[in-house]
């Protein structure tokens, strides 16, 4: 595997870097949507966030600020920096989904005080809960960042 060389400005691959830019931009949209959504749940609907939600927020919120720094001017290396955060948040969201589904037993629940992280506070259409939304957001961002990486490599 060859190292991803940063594109010199005004390079031959203007078209591919355009696509990469749009993919990172879409990733920022997902991050901002997820951040505002999380704030809506906790600040407007006043649902208390559990500990695992806070850990996922720690990985999600900085992306709202970090990703635009890689968009203006476009720096393909942003994929590398952002992906580190996204993968961390993705891991925690997978853990919480397993917790909610009951795959991971109660004994190793990390939160004993406050709101239990296995408690389902919102259920849309019978299966969409907040941990699932978080998992979908992080998964989408991984896909977008990987696609952006593949585009800008060329």
């Amino acid at each position: 595997m060859s190292a991803p060389a940063p594109l010199p400005p005004g390079s031959r691959a203007r078209g591919t870097s355009d696509a990469a830019w749009l993919l990172v931009f879409a990733c920022w949209l997902v991050a901002t949507l997820a951040t505002l959504g999380a704030l809506f749940f906790s600040e407007v609907m006043e649902l208390p966030p559990c500990v695992l939600c806070w850990y996922q927020r720690i990985f999600m919120f900085p992306l709202v600020i970090l990703l635009p720094l890689g968009l203006f001017p476009f720096d393909p290396r942003i994929v590398r920096y952002a992906l580190a955060l996204v993968l961390g948040g993705w891991g925690i969201s997978v853990f919480q989904m397993l917790l909610v589904a009951g795959v991971i037993p109660e004994a190793i629940r990390p939160c004993t005080k406050g709101v239990p992280c296995s408690e389902v506070q919102i259920e849309w259409l019978g299966f969409v809960n907040i941990p699932l939304l978080s998992f979908l957001a992080f998964s989408t961002m991984i896909a977008l960042l990987v696609a952006a990486h593949l585009r800008s490599k060329r």
Binding site: A13, G15, T16, D18, F25, T32, L36, P68, L71, F74
Partner: peptide, 29 residues
């Protein structure tokens, strides 16, 4: 992807600039 390099190399195809798109999306959200 091959025909890509023949695309016009304008940075703001379609009329809207990247910054404009970003700001519009942020305000809309």
């Amino acid at each position: 992807r091959n025909p890509k390099p023949q695309d016009p190399p304008s940075p703001s195809r379609g009329g809207i600039s990247r910054a404009g798109l970003f700001i519009a999306a942020g305000v809309a959200l």
